[in-house]
Design a protein around this nucleic acid. Structure first.
Lengths: 207, 207
DNA sequence: GGCCGGGTCAACCGATCGGTTGATGCGCGG
DNA sequence: CCGCGCATCAACCGATCGGTTGACCCGGCC
């Protein structure tokens, strides 16, 4: 089984080489520390599975690399191996064509089995990730309306209700109504908590 | 040189073992995946340098472990080795008694030299971290105190003044005084704007 | 010793926010 | 057609926040 590693941390790459070196059925045919290097290397050495970190320092992020890798002719499977477990990260990675999502905190045996599963074309999720996904499925996330997101962005800039009203050509009363709905959907009860919750769920993005 | 590793990621521990194993002057005398394990292990095997991750999963965080380690009789040097580079993380780690702050993304050679420097009692910072510190020094930017950053983090969680007071064991009056100073230094006039400004300037980091 | 900055606290005031109830109009789909 | 969600507005109330002034203690520095 031919593996390719993409991770900007030399320590992590060394760890994977050390761990996977003990598995006789696995062979590491290449490594990369950033997106450009990854795309070159993967095209050159045609691995079976790519282990992909989502955060790759300054350049392109792992999601975009995953998307491009999956766009290659006869693409390898991409197995995400990262630190984070936010809903947004998971959804974006899966959307980009990743076949699985493992956390770096997972025990080595789970990693080995995950790689073998990915090579067979089976999906694999870390226990914590799977739990989160299931919960999200069961509880259909209260989607914010476009208008509510619009308010949220002004909220994040620190605008008062009056300023929001002026910028959106509505009255303060309407702003307050929207805010109540937003608090409700995000499960918070202050404007500040709403902003951080929205940023964490990547509903809005700070400049 | 006796080293102790504290990191909740098996992959990272394996990587450090693999990398440091190639250095003849370094010997890894113990590892731990969480705070409690770390404190027990360090007390037992008296290392020269502890490599400490700041994020340790569910339990105590690395900053608190660092503080307690430095409180031991004849404590080892603690060298932080982590992924993040926000001012808040750096300040809290240094405040807790860490002698250096390296990023996992740094090249192995920088890591080796950093460990040797830490063992000699010299401070060491990753290039990126050092750059950030220098810029902070040079810029007329009004530096927030450690206490103010602490408030800012609670602010970002959406806590009210009363909650902040309770969590920090001070009164609401003091909280308000701090907030006025924070608004002043960040050039804003609402708590929400303070949070977004702080996140943009990487004074704090959202979970 | 004296100065200064950081951290702590107090009292006060007006402005704003959080929460509620209730209401109107509009578009969409069963 | 009628319900439902979305967006809009109004009035009200208590709680909280933003801003000010003034005060104390402590540690570092000149």
């Amino acid at each position: 089984m031919r593996l390719f590693l993409v991770d900007d941390h030399p320590v992590v790459r060394a760890g994977l080489v050390a761990l996977l070196g003990g598995e006789p059925d696995m062979e590491i045919v290449g490594e990369a520390a950033d997106g450009a290097e990854a795309l070159r290397g993967i095209a050159a050495c045609s691995p079976d599975v790519v282990l992909m970190d989502l955060q790759l320092g300054e350049g392109v992020d792992g999601v975009e690399v995953t998307r491009r890798v999956r766009g290659l002719p006869a693409p390898p499977q991409v197995l995400v191996l990262t630190t984070y477990e936010s809903d947004a990260d998971i959804m974006r990675a899966v959307d980009a064509g990743a076949i699985g999502y493992l956390l770096k905190a997972c025990p080595p045996e789970e990693l080995f089995q995950g790689i073998r599963a990915a090579a067979r074309g089976e999906s694999v999720l870390s226990a914590k990730v799977a739990t989160r996904m299931m919960r999200r499925m069961r509880e259909p996330g209260p989607a914010l309306s476009a208008r509510e997101v619009e308010l949220l962005e002004l909220l994040a800039s620190g605008a008062s209700n009056r300023e929001i009203a002026r910028r959106l050509y509505i009255t303060e009363a309407t702003v307050k109504t929207h805010l109540v709905h937003i608090y409700d959907k995000l499960g918070v009860d202050t404007r500040t908590a709403a902003v951080t919750a929205a940023v964490e769920r990547r509903l809005i993005r700070l400049p």
